[in-house]
Design a protein around this nucleic acid. Structure first.
Length: 184
DNA sequence: AAAGTGATCATG
DNA sequence: ATGATCACTTTG
């Protein structure tokens, strides 16, 4: 079977505006829906590649039994407690690097997972497509100009759905509508 | 349906 | 030190 690859934007479009750390300094429930329809770019070896974000998820707080901070601060989860705009990239199932961005107040552990982009349908696929790896973990957006989020300033309709892949979590958390999907 | 893959964290 | 677990993808 032939491998289908996403079509990348190779430069920022005129109507794109880069999101600053200030954007992420609000609760994840407020930010996540606004991130849907935005663009994620990564520049490696001078090559700019961007994709449109089509799906995101929230992981929020020590009381969220699906969140990596469910057991409090650990070496891994400590990144979630950092400043909004900090990148949290971790290895999932031994194979996939998953990209999150920390939101909300410092010391409150929450982040938005980038779950899918147009043409890269899956959190592990989009990081692969954009060459995003764990060496961006714990980096602040400000100190990492090669990675950026962009808004086109428009409002995009979205669906709110339960999160995926968290069967182990408590029932109440499994049913939370913390996945946001771009509506076609 | 099930393997592949390895960091992480709770347990002892 | 050990082992179960896991915010996934691909293959059959």
């Amino acid at each position: 079977m032939e491998k289908k690859r996403p079509t990348f934007y190779t430069r920022p479009e005129n109507d794109w505006e880069k999101l600053t750390e200030e954007f992420f300094a609000r609760p994840a429930v407020e930010i996540a829906p606004q991130l849907v329809g935005c663009y994620l770019s990564h520049e490696v070896d001078g090559e700019f590649k961007a994709l449109r974000i089509t799906e995101v998820e929230i992981y929020s707080g020590e009381t969220d039994s699906a969140c990596h901070a469910r057991s409090g601060r650990t070496p891994r989860s400590s990144v979630l407690y950092k400043k909004p705009g900090t990148l949290y990239v971790y290895l999932c199932y031994g194979i996939h690097d998953l990209l999150n961005i920390v939101t909300g107040e410092e010391d409150y552990p929450e982040a938005v997972l980038i779950r899918a982009c147009a043409g890269a349908d899956g959190p592990g696929k989009l990081t692969r497509a954009l060459n995003i790896t764990r060496d961006l973990n714990d980096r602040s957006l400000r100190e990492t100009p090669e990675l950026a989020f962009w808004s086109d300033g428009k409002y995009h309709e979205f669906n709110a759905l339960p999160r995926v892949g968290i069967d182990y979590a408590d029932e109440a958390d499994r049913f939370k509508l913390w996945r946001f999907q771009l509506r076609e």
